[in-house]
Write a protein that binds this DNA or RNA. Structure first.
Lengths: 209, 209, 209, 209
DNA sequence: GATGAATGAGGGTTCATTCAT
DNA sequence: TATGAATGAACCCTCATTCAT
């Protein structure tokens, strides 16, 4: 019984994983259930035994991504000092973008479609963002960082870090990194961190030569 | 004669426009020729009279985007001083992202697929980027801006400005702007400009309160 | 005026010629009006100005072939002696098969379809064949040739000679003749003639070695 | 299980049979998958579940015909005496032409197109023909038959017997046989056999009256 | 006459989903 | 559960023919 359950669970994971890859690559409409079944190593008929429809599977995965991101994608409101919070956030986010680019790709694809499936998630996103904005505003009020637009500051950090997932191919071309080789996470994290720490006065610009 | 030519030209434009919208929304595979025809206000058979195939139309539009971008998307190597060059670049790019978000959306979608149709364009992109990097390096060498990684500096400006096109829906939600209302281009341009000018020492951080 | 007429006539000939080639190659259903127009060196719209429909053009060509054949394809009932009549017939037919194989190909293709368009021609064909049979029967009655089945005798001459048009490709392969090089008409005519002359006692078998 | 397999096998046979009929009638280009599906008594979508493409199905059938013919269409090199070998060959071939005329029709249709799909079969055909030619040459050398051109002798036997399949409609008209009634196989076989036996001295011409 | 444009029907094929076993 | 088979709707595209200029 437990063995059967475990197998079922393994198949479900394989489906989620395969579907994520395929949806991220080709979008909802551009992905065939056959492709998902192949990626999961099962037959198409078997796939339809585990899912109710392609759309539902897509929805489920979107929700999955969303919940994973809530922990990852917002400046923590824990007691960290601003610099630590920002450094951690950027490092975490860059690492995630390089290791799991499919998440971002599926996400941006959904945005391109006008995010019809996201309606139910917007409230939670807005709330989490507002929470982080409050933290930033507090930092500003306490004189711990220079004044910034809290919302746009977050959006820009998000934008820059996401970019490495979404434009991986282009970044490889521009940085001269071969398809399979890893991108230089250190160089990226360093430069991104500087950009935002300097912006809010937590780091000084190097003197010009 | 001229009337006929004009009509033909109008139809061709309608096709390009409609196809751009649809491809940007649903990608190559996810877009049906019926949808393109509808968007262009013509019949499917008529569409196929004007194009040779969906793939070719896609390619043509991709090339179109690419050539438009060459003028828009790189820091000009003209004699501008660094601040003017950066300000202009960001303003131009933000405006474009807000007015023609489909361009970026089609582009990021193509990236997600691994950019199979871009092969022929990479060389030109790399060359243009390298040219801009040379300009930035010169600025650094001349002590006109603080040292930055020239390539990543460009990538990040690109990332932040593109973001407003790609994540328009989300941005609206977070900024509380209704679907049809315009986003606050001034606020965005201002904050983005500050981010990058401060980074390279061309603007000072406001003193914390 | 006469010049215009001549041009029109030239176009009509080009259409017939082109259509014959195409129909012979790909059959009625398998031939597109575009292909015919191309072969005739005109536009598709222009073609439809000259013909009323693809089917009608096909019919016309079939009739054309048929009338050309009436003179070619039956043993002449003129006063020739049997040997001359048979020799002439075979020589004429082999030459025609090698020079205008399209005729036979279109014909056999029509047969394969059940010859739905031939209905009106059958009577004339049967009459002509019967006429020739009468000649043969007379020859037999007069003791000028050995007894043969007059109808089958004709059918077999027809079959063997047609074959060189219909199976030209295969014959080339078997005889080792390159695609553009001419088939050995002399060898073929000689052997075919012997076959039928020997059959009706007008030529002796070579003694076995 | 076995029932399912049997059903599948029956469907496959129905497809092959239906496709053969349709292809023989209208050629590759002129045959629609709908027509094949109808002939096989299945839906178009079902057809495409069993075949990979129309072209592949055509190829498969062509190969099928070809392999069936290898045993049928060459003078056996077994120890038969010449007369038996020739008599058997003709009888076999006439029977086949009358019973399975579609084979020949598809074949001749393929020839008309220039036999683009036959490339891979030519070698085997040439080899088999050459083998039979060797047998005939041996017969001649041994004085068992009169000298003939071995290749053309084969071609002509082939031509005459094929004819009854390819021109069945015309033959019916000329012989006055109603569409469904059987052709007189005996009369045909007899006359064809005489033609070739007489040619090679294995039978005497009847004395003229 | 000639031609670019248009169109309704149909071409081959794929697909998400269901069904029977 | 799992899987071959089936299906109706769609998909991309071509075609014979007509129309307007």
């Amino acid at each position: 019984m437990s063995v059967a359950k475990e197998k079922r669970s393994r198949i479900r994971d394989a489906i989620r994983e395969g579907a994520l890859q395929e949806f991220a690559r080709n979008g909802l409409a551009g992905t065939s259930t056959q492709a998902i079944a192949d990626a999961a190593g099962i037959t198409k008929a078997q796939l339809h035994y585990y899912i109710s429809s392609k759309e539902d599977l897509y929805q489920e995965i979107l929700g999955h991504i969303f919940s994973e991101w809530r922990s990852l994608f917002f400046i923590s409101s824990s007691g960290d000092d601003p610099e630590t919070a920002i450094r951690d956030y950027i490092a975490r986010k860059v690492r995630h973008a390089l290791e799991h680019p499919e998440f971002s790709r599926l996400f941006v694809n959904e945005m391109a479609r006008g995010a019809p499936e996201m309606a139910e998630h917007w409230d939670r996103l807005r709330a989490a963002t507002e929470e982080a904005s409050a933290v930033i505003r507090k930092w500003i009020a306490e004189g711990r960082i220079a004044p910034v637009d809290p919302l746009l500051f977050q959006i820009h950090m998000w934008a820059v870090t996401q970019h490495y997932a979404e434009y991986e191919v282009q970044t490889r071309v521009l940085m001269g990194v071969a398809p399979q080789a890893p991108l230089d996470a250190g160089r990226i994290t360093e430069e991104v961190t500087q950009l935002f720490l300097i912006r809010c006065g937590l780091m000084q610009v190097e003197r010009a030569a």
